[in-house]
């Protein structure tokens, strides 16, 4: 189908963007790789698209104490960045699972997190890494940990008029990203994003609930056997068209077993 009619504006500054976002029916457009399909299928009918891709302060990767990745950084840039591959390899590994090259060339980190699809890769990575999301509005900045950002199915802590500006990730070199999908590039049936450092393990699952889910029991377990037992209490994955909840839990256990050694080597 064809998209409904809407107006389009491309602000050059945050100030201009905040003005535009106050207009009725305004919606942010970033890479368009989720929004444009929903327009084409007429699932969404905004009056004004505010294309934020011209705001340079939302782009780029800054390396300091943490890794600050701008909301506009694309999946392809994350996949190719040598810095990210070395210092936050979880993200680089996850990016390669997102859709296909032509979609990764336009889809953005900020768009994926703001959309909060529970089967998407980055939300689970952000949760495992305990990333900080930097939200900007006319009233200023709010810094929200990933654990409080994802509120429900496609629902986040973003308020009207606010945008996601950047995400700060800690450096964590030891990580595992695994997912099962029917075909390369499909959304995952179930997936695992796990990291480990001196303070312990953090293992999150995608496709396992209405939001990405941190498997607290499994993360804290001292053996794989214990972890597999704990996982049954940590997650209760919803069935989809092809897989029952029990199948998904079984597959989650398979992934946990595969990731366990990587996440358990002595520090």
């Amino acid at each position: 189908m064809k998209a409904p009619s809407f107006a389009y504006a491309k602000p050059r500054s945050l100030e201009e963007a905040f003005d535009l976002l106050e207009r009725p029916g305004a919606k942010i457009l970033a890479g368009g790789q989720s929004l444009v399909p929903s327009l084409n299928m007429r699932l969404s009918s905004p009056e004004l698209l505010v294309d934020i891709t011209g705001i340079s302060s939302l782009a780029g990767i800054q390396v300091g104490r943490t890794f600050r990745i701008g909301a506009l950084v694309t999946h392809a840039q994350i996949e190719r960045s040598a810095e990210i591959r070395k210092q936050v390899p979880l993200l680089a590994e996850a990016a390669a699972h997102i859709a296909h090259p032509a979609i990764r060339n336009r889809g953005t980190l900020g768009g994926s997190l703001a959309l909060a699809d529970p089967a998407a890769e980055y939300p689970a990575c952000a949760l495992a890494l305990n990333a900080t999301l930097v939200l900007l509005g006319r009233k200023g900045e709010r810094r929200v940990p990933a654990g409080s950002f994802f509120k429900g199915l496609f629902e986040t802590d973003l308020r009207t008029g606010e945008l996601l500006a950047a995400v700060e990730f800690p450096r964590v070199e030891r990580s595992a990203f695994l997912e099962l999908a029917r075909r390369q590039g499909d959304y995952a049936i179930i997936g695992l994003a796990g990291v480990a450092d001196g303070s312990g393990r953090r293992i999150a699952f995608l496709g396992a609930g209405a939001t990405p889910v941190l498997a607290k029991g499994a993360s804290a377990a001292s053996s794989l056997e214990q972890a597999l037992k704990a996982l049954g209490n940590d997650i209760d994955p919803p069935a989809d068209l092809y897989h029952s909840s029990a199948t998904k839990l079984h597959l989650a256990k398979v992934l946990l077993s595969r990731a366990w050694n990587t996440l358990s080597k002595p520090h």
């Binding site: 444009v36 060339n105 336009r106």
Partner: peptide
């Protein structure tokens, strides 16, 4: 870079 022509607005 290759892109999906159906997922990019011409004005973009």
């Amino acid at each position: 870079e290759i892109v999906r022509g159906c997922l990019m607005l011409a004005v973009q």
